[in-house]
């Protein structure tokens, strides 16, 4: 194995770049209203969008935040690749420190965001919005006309890119720990004491 390449960081960098591309098209978390769907919320740090009756609704501020997240992840992925190919240079540690945190931060912010979103939706609407799984959200009695009972079938699920993001984060984190085992360029390993 070539000691001049940190293969774990290389895998982490590639995984991060693949994750960016995948996340634009496949959501990390999806919330579906109705069956067949009437409305849908697709959430990933790189693409958060809503659709109502088949029409996508794009909010400019959210789009900007998504682009910011995408560029941040991209810079992290590229940094991991540069580091992976030159892990024993004096500047390598700095580049690694810049790159390895990005997927991890994205995963943490995403989880906190989903929990906050669902908690907020539950407290504001009075519905029981699930984080994972299906349920029938019942409209409060004061919102239902003429004593009617109205409920909406909803389904929430994490998509495979979310789990892939955890794997990418784990690889980047592992690369950080593996870095300690890579000798810095120009340093010489201590000589083995002679027994003769």
């Amino acid at each position: 194995m070539n000691k001049n390449v940190n293969y774990i960081a290389l895998a982490g960098g590639i995984a991060t770049l693949v994750l960016i591309i995948v996340s634009v098209f496949v959501p990390w978390w999806q919330f579906t209203v109705g069956n067949p769907a009437l409305a849908q919320v697709n959430v990933s740090p790189m693409n958060l969008n809503f659709s109502l009756l088949g029409t996508a609704i794009t909010i400019p501020l959210i789009l900007a935040i998504n682009i910011a997240a995408l560029l941040t992840m991209l810079s992290g992925g590229i940094a991991m690749l540069i580091y992976a190919l030159k892990p024993n240079k004096p500047y390598s540690k700095k580049i690694l420190g810049f790159g390895y945190k990005k997927p991890l931060i994205a995963v943490i912010i995403f989880i906190v965001g989903i929990i906050a979103l669902v908690t907020l939706a539950n407290s504001l609407s009075g519905f029981n919005v699930p984080v994972v799984g299906g349920s029938a959200m019942k409209l409060p009695a004061n919102m239902s006309p003429d004593g009617m009972s109205i409920s909406v079938n909803v389904l929430a699920a994490f998509g495979w890119p979310f789990y892939f993001a955890i794997v990418a984060s784990a690889l980047c984190l592992a690369a950080k720990f593996y870095h300690k085992k890579i000798p810095l360029e120009g340093t010489v390993a201590p000589p083995i004491p002679s027994t003769a």
Binding site: L61, L63, A64, I65, A68, L71, L74, S75, A79, I95
Partner: peptide
């Protein structure tokens, strides 16, 4: 090394602030 640190900070800030500032403008 110091230059690299500054560049990385600028990249971090630029990627985060840039798109949001652009859409705000």
């Amino acid at each position: 090394m110091q230059v690299l640190g500054i560049i990385l900070v600028l990249v971090s800030v630029g990627t985060m602030v840039g798109p949001i500032a652009a859409v705000a403008v």
